[in-house]
Write a protein that binds this DNA or RNA. Structure first.
Length: 317
DNA sequence: AAATTTGTCAACCGCCTCGTA
DNA sequence: ATACGAGGCGGTTGACAAATT
């Protein structure tokens, strides 16, 4: 089965009725829908009504409802989705199902070799921060990468004699930590405390300065001395070249997730070859409707009514 | 062919962060 | 300043499939 990236800015439609227009920070910043819709005096509803909320695997029927709903209404308040889509699910569950499985820009199938290598490289830098890793990998979800790491890559690395946590040869495990220059990262890990992935800690120190420009260098080196910092920096710089294009904050990530949320003026595709194949919403909609690989027919999208197709076609007006 | 073990991955759980009241 | 809720995240679980005995 071929892997396909759907360069598709999905929320082509206005927010839900009553939602109003999310202002400023976009939809993710939007709050307070319930108070407006239900005439309540501010305050909030619980995440989901625990009673009557279904759990477990999603049925085709539920998938169909969710996809149809989001195609028609776009993404807005996840808490409102199950109610409006006629699903007996928690909003969280809907979001998860959508982001991990139903989103049309997802690749299907196992990670290929280059993707695997990228995961390994990114994991070496970011640790178990799967969402950060996924953000650098087009069409892949954090859950998918996490699963693949745990079931494939971990074993592969162990087979190769590499510690999947430290990314260093296993035989070095028993060596003293303090003077080994190749264990720079590990030393940093030791100096940082409690992250689940020691390397993740080290890398979080490094990455934090990349990804969080508000972090100061002094903050990042609170627990290591100057010499260690210098050595660490030198060590990390070796690899920095390799991934700088991936990790640069100034460069858009491969999958610009914001693209999903702020489509207001019609298609604005990711910068890749697939994207160029689509020149209009008609193309997108047509493609989506024809997409067998995604299993669109399983969701009943091929049986969109005229109104729904019309909405899709006019989404960028 | 049946039973058991192992592998896979979708989904849930609980915690954290951030924004709002 | 505080409480609360939404969304997001990573860890874990459990159902199912595949492989092995």
């Amino acid at each position: 089965m071929s892997s396909i990236i759907i360069p598709f800015r999905f929320q082509l439609l206005p927010p839900y009725p009553g939602c109003g227009s999310p202002v400023g920070g976009g939809i993710s910043k939007f709050r307070g829908w319930w108070s407006a819709e239900e005439g309540k005096t501010m305050g909030r509803q619980p995440c989901c009504d625990k009673l009557g909320v279904k759990k477990g695997p999603w049925t085709t029927e539920e998938d169909k409802k969710l996809v149809n709903f989001i195609l028609t209404n776009g993404q807005c308040c996840w808490r409102a989705v199950p109610k409006l889509a006629g699903l007996r699910r928690c909003g969280k569950s809907c979001r998860l199902r959508w982001t991990n499985y139903l989103r049309p820009d997802l690749k299907r199938g196992l990670l290929n070799e280059s993707e695997e290598q990228l995961v390994i490289d990114l994991h070496a830098r970011l640790g178990n921060r799967w969402s950060k890793i996924a953000a650098r990998m087009p069409g892949r979800t954090d859950n998918e990468i996490k699963n693949h790491w745990n079931t494939h890559i971990k074993k592969k690395l162990l087979k190769m004699g590499i510690d999947p946590v430290t990314h260093e040869p296993l035989q070095k495990e028993n060596e003293p930590i303090k003077t080994s220059s190749s264990s720079t990262e590990k030393r940093l890990l030791e100096s940082k405390d409690h992250h689940s992935s020691p390397l993740g800690s080290a890398n979080s120190t490094h990455v934090s300065s990349e990804e969080n420009s508000s972090s100061t260098s002094s903050e990042n080196s609170l627990t290591i001395n100057d010499h260690e910092t210098e050595t660490l920096f030198e060590s990390l710089c070796e690899d920095q070249m390799l991934l700088s294009h991936l990790l640069s904050e100034n460069e858009p990530s491969f999958m610009d997730t914001s693209a999903w949320e702020l489509p207001n003026n019609g298609p604005s595709f990711n910068n890749n070859d697939h994207a160029n194949a689509f020149t209009s919403w008609d193309d997108c909609a047509t493609w989506l409707l024809d997409c067998q690989d995604f299993g669109v027919h399983d969701f009943g999208l091929d049986s969109f009514n005229d109104v729904e197709i019309g909405i899709l076609n006019t989404g960028n007006k």
